[in-house]
Each structure stands twice: as C-alpha cells, then as structure tokens.
Design a protein around this nucleic acid. Sequence first.
DNA 1: AGGTATTGTTCAGTGCACCGATGAATTCGA
DNA 2: TCGAATTCATCGGTGCACTGAACAATACCT
Lengths: 154, 154
Amino acid sequence: MAAVDLATHPGHLARRLQQAHYLLWNTMVSEEITSPQFAVLNTLVAEPGLDQRTVGERVGLDRSTIAEVISRLGRRGLLDKVRDPQDGRRFLLRLTDEGLRTHKKLTVRTARMNQVFLAPLSAEEQNLFFDLIRRVADAAEGLRNPAEPLVAQP
Amino acid sequence: MAAVDLATHPGHLARRLQQAHYLLWNTMVSEEITSPQFAVLNTLVAEPGLDQRTVGERVGLDRSTIAEVISRLGRRGLLDKVRDPQDGRRFLLRLTDEGLRTHKKLTVRTARMNQVFLAPLSAEEQNLFFDLIRRVADAAEGLRNPAEPLVAQP
DNA sequence: AGGTATTGTTCAGTGCACCGATGAATTCGA
DNA sequence: TCGAATTCATCGGTGCACTGAACAATACCT
C-alpha cells in the first residue's frame, strides 16, 4: 500500500543504465576486457608512468578496486608495474606493446558501441544527457570531498 | 597520443553516477540495507507473494543475483520464503512485519536522499534526466530481448 | 503414460566496488 | 635526527552482477 515507483528513483535508473551498458559492451566491444579496464588502459595511454593511486583517481576507482583491476591487466600482459626508484611506496605503470594494441582496437569498437547506445537520443539530447549526469555525479562527489576552504580550519 | 575523453563515454558516466549514488545512500539512507535490497522490499510491498524470478524481473536483477539478495534479506528476517504448493519449483516471497517496518522507514529516508541527489537540477531538468536515462536503458534492454514479432516465427 | 522440453532455483566462477585494518616507505616537525 | 604523522599498497570481508552448468519439478506432446 505504501510502495514507491522505482522509475522516479535516480539510483535505480543509474543501475539499470549501467546494466544496459554492460550488456552492450559485452556484445559489441569485448568479453575479455571490461569497461573499467579500458578506462585504465586509456589513462595510461594519455599519461604513461602514473602510479596506481593516481590512475584510480583518474578513472574513479577506490584503492582496493584499482589494485585488482591492475593486477588483472598485468596478468594478461597489458601493462608493467615497476617500483618508483624515487619513492619506494609506489608502483609506476606503463602499457606494454600488447596493451597499446588492445587499447587501439577497443577504442574503435567503443566508439561504435557508444553510437548504438545513444542512438535513441538526438544530438542535442545526447549533450544534455552528458551534462545532466555529469552535474549530478560531480555534485555528489563534492559532498564527499568538500572543497578546500579558503581559510584553513584549525 | 590516441587517448579518448572518458567524459563523453556514457558507460563511464553511468558508473560514476552509480558510485555517487552508492555513497549518498550509505550516508543518508542505510549502511545495512542496500538500494537493490530496498527495491526488492518495495516490490514485495506492492505485490506480496511473488516468486523469486518475477521479483528479479521487476527490479532488473538476474537469477543468480536475485537469489543472493533474497537470501540476505531472509537471513535478516525481513522476508519469508515458502514453497509454492501449486508449483514445487518456486518459492513464494512475503515480507515479515520487520520487513514492512524497514521498508517504511527507508522510504522516508530515500525520498530525502533523492532530493539531495537531484538538487543540482531544476524541476524540468530532473524530468528530462529521468526521461533520457529511461529511454537509453529501455532501448538497450530492447536489443537484448527483441520484442515479440507480430507473427510467430517457426 | 512416457519421454522431451521448459521453467525455477542453485552452484561455481569471474569481476567490480566499497570499507577498515595493516604494513612499509616517506615526510614533517620539534 | 629521531619520533610522529602521512601516504601507497595489500589483505580480509561484504555485496552486487553476469554467465554457464546442474538439478528438480512441471508442462507438453504423441
């Protein structure tokens, strides 16, 4: 008698959207490499030699998750981990040739998949879609990591 | 040199959106009951006595996942599983009093959380947000389960 | 009625995602 | 310079999410 309509719950919609994407990714892009794995490869193409924590920050993965993702990519020979000689706490990450080739191949397929995924929306709507989602996600992240106050707090 | 901008990838945005929601849910709604668990409770408030597979269909969870979610809710005493006397394959699900109380409490908190989550958007934008996401998710699901053809195929 | 197909559930395996605690290396401060 | 705080990575635990395979109960069909 007091049930709610889940279609008006952003969290439920977000989950469904991600599931839909997962499905399409699996059929149109790759069954081996997942979307978060591709995000890591992409980050290391842009900035080779990053350390693990920073990569996690770039793609939005927590320290434990990024460690697992990187370990999988390492096992598949797509990247190398080397201790930073300057700072023995971190590992520096770099794609192998195989990793570069994989990234290139998947970039093409991902572009095709994005077209199919967004096909129900007009070009304007697609921009709106990006904008609205980004604003909501950014704001919620902001609640987590409050911006630096202008004056330091004691 | 060939890196892509992930901010224009709907899959990446979908993941970030869900993470942001997860965070807010944990702080504003519950650390015990997750959003998918609430969706199951909500479905059983609306339609008591559903079987497990149908609940999964309503909330968008596959057979394995729904089994785990339901087993957790059962362990916490929020619902009961009974063999259907009419069809020995299925279990009929029904909330306990504790389950009903939990649903009621979380409904209030969830409404508050949704307001905070969507606060960056105007009322019109919120409707657009729902509409755009729903259209994309529905279309992708449609690719998976092609609609019944008007004439049966041999 | 008896064999085949379908359906509901479970199980094993893989991967993402979070937190708290731990340990090692570095940095900061008195 | 030496002890305390910070930072990077790992480990253990929980939960979501999917697939393919197995199993039992039911339904269908001749």
